[in-house]
């Protein structure tokens, strides 16, 4: 059968491309989480400058297409500032900045969903703001945020396919190259779709498992 022959023949490139996709996704999300926490603190801070900075960042990222961000950061920035960077670095930076904006809003939403009384109870016991955040508010916020964080993981994973436009050899780019050679667009794009769907399905299942685990005494 032609389908299985093709599947076997291209299995190794698909696997290495899948690893690239996953690598970019995971590295970007780790950085995006850090960006998210930092910018969320900016938003919750009393400083107008920091608030404005965070709002500006989120507004820019949400208000422009990812593909424009890709071109701007990969081609535009090095040209304007006169430096070079590796494709992989650029890709991780792009995806981190993009996901970071969404993570900021997500983390803020999680913190604000926690009843004000939790912070007050912790403070009234003598805990500092930072201690109360770390011990009381953030652990609870994280639990409410978890489904949205996994969702962001899924979105970012699928968005990495756009990096094919600057020829990062992730799943989609890999498929493009194969199709250019063998013209089997139906089978090959079907196969790559299957790969994405499989990874996303596994992630969703993991999310459900974690959610069930973190319910306290209910």
């Amino acid at each position: 059968m032609k389908f299985f022959d093709l599947l076997v023949k291209h299995f190794s490139t698909f696997t290495s491309a899948m690893l690239v996709t996953i690598e970019v996704t995971i590295m970007s999300l780790i950085l995006a989480t850090i960006l998210g926490v930092v910018f969320c603190m900016f938003k919750l801070s009393k400083s107008r400058i920091l608030q404005t900075l965070a709002n500006f960042y989120i507004s820019i990222i949400r208000g422009t297409p990812l593909i424009v961000q890709i071109f701007f950061i990969y081609f535009g920035l090095p040209m304007a500032l006169g430096f070079r960077w590796s494709l992989m670095t650029a890709c991780v930076v792009i995806m981190s900045l993009n996901a970071g904006a969404y993570m900021t809003e997500l983390i803020r939403g999680g913190i604000e969903a926690i009843d004000k009384g939790q912070m007050e109870a912790a403070r009234s016991l003598g805990l500092s703001y930072a201690q109360a955040m770390r011990k009381i508010v953030l652990p609870q916020a994280f639990r409410t945020m978890l489904p949205s964080i996994i969702n962001q993981f899924i979105v970012t994973l699928k968005d990495t396919s756009l990096l094919s436009i600057i020829s990062l050899r992730e799943l989609t780019q890999n498929t493009k190259i194969i199709v250019a050679n063998n013209m089997e667009a139906f089978i090959m794009y079907g196969t790559v779709g299957l790969y994405y769907w499989l990874i996303v399905s596994i992630l969703s299942e993991i999310a459900k498992m974690i959610e069930r685990r973190t319910t306290y005494g209910k």
Binding site: D115, Q118, S124, L125
Partner: peptide, 14 residues
């Protein structure tokens, strides 16, 4: 605040 305990209407247990 360490020396002032407070009890709230809605308990605010963790």
């Amino acid at each position: 605040r360490r020396n002032i305990g407070m009890v709230f209407q809605h308990f605010n247990l963790f």
